[in-house]
């Protein structure tokens, strides 16, 4: 075995990054090249944000930035300073998110669950924007979030159900349960 000269882990030079995550500003000391996804996951312990590609394609790392679904793997943490970042952990009390969770559960809109946090945040943005509950429109909106397990159909149905409830003006889009 060849052993490193630096047995005692030398950290690389770090910078201070002030991130507003889920309504709270937190300062972390990280190297300036760290991605937002890595800082959220490995420094702030917010592991609902998943990493599926780091190529900007799969959408598993989706967070809301100033309310807009954004890929956290394409952004340096430093570049996210001053922006309002929302992860799934930050909206668990939001009634619209809860309506989506409930609909995903009833419609079997998830299997392995790896894509699910990203899907939920994309769907939440759709609910907030009051996107029309058309399957084609929903598919368009979801096309930036890959799911390898479900074939999307029941995700589309779950999201449609919540959007319809929003259309009807139900509070927070909570679907009328049978």
């Amino acid at each position: 075995m060849t052993e490193g000269a630096n047995q005692k882990t030398t950290a690389e030079e770090a910078v201070e990054v002030a991130l507003e995550v889920n309504g709270t500003v937190t300062k972390v000391l990280v190297p300036s090249r760290w991605l937002l996804s890595d800082v959220l996951r490995h420094r702030l312990g917010l592991t609902a944000t998943h990493v599926g590609c780091e190529q900007g394609v799969c959408g598993a790392c989706t967070v809301l930035i100033d309310g807009v679904p954004t890929r956290s793997c394409l952004l340096f943490a430093k570049a996210a300073e001053g922006l309002a970042i929302t992860t799934l952990e930050g909206v668990l009390d939001d009634p619209a998110l809860q309506a989506l969770q409930e609909a995903f559960h009833r419609h079997h809109a998830l299997q392995c669950g790896f894509c699910t946090p990203g899907m939920l945040l994309t769907a939440l943005a759709m609910v907030r924007q009051q996107v029309p509950a058309e399957p084609e429109t929903i598919r368009e909106y979801l096309s930036g979030n890959l799911c390898r397990c479900t074939g999307y159909q029941y995700i589309v149905e779950a999201v449609a159900e919540v959007l319809q409830a929003v259309d009807r003006g139900d509070p927070a889009g909570s679907p009328a349960l049978p």
């Binding site: 592991t47 609902a48 944000t49 998943h50 992860t87 799934l88 952990e89 668990l92 969770q101 995903f104 559960h105 009833r106 079997h108 998830l110 392995c112 669950g113 790896f114 699910t116 946090p117 939920l120």
Partner: peptide, 16 residues
């Protein structure tokens, strides 16, 4: 039966 696995996955609490 709706899945018992879902709660942890839907809340981002599952640990991969």
């Amino acid at each position: 039966v709706a899945r018992v696995e879902d709660a942890r996955l839907l809340s981002g609490r599952a640990r991969y």
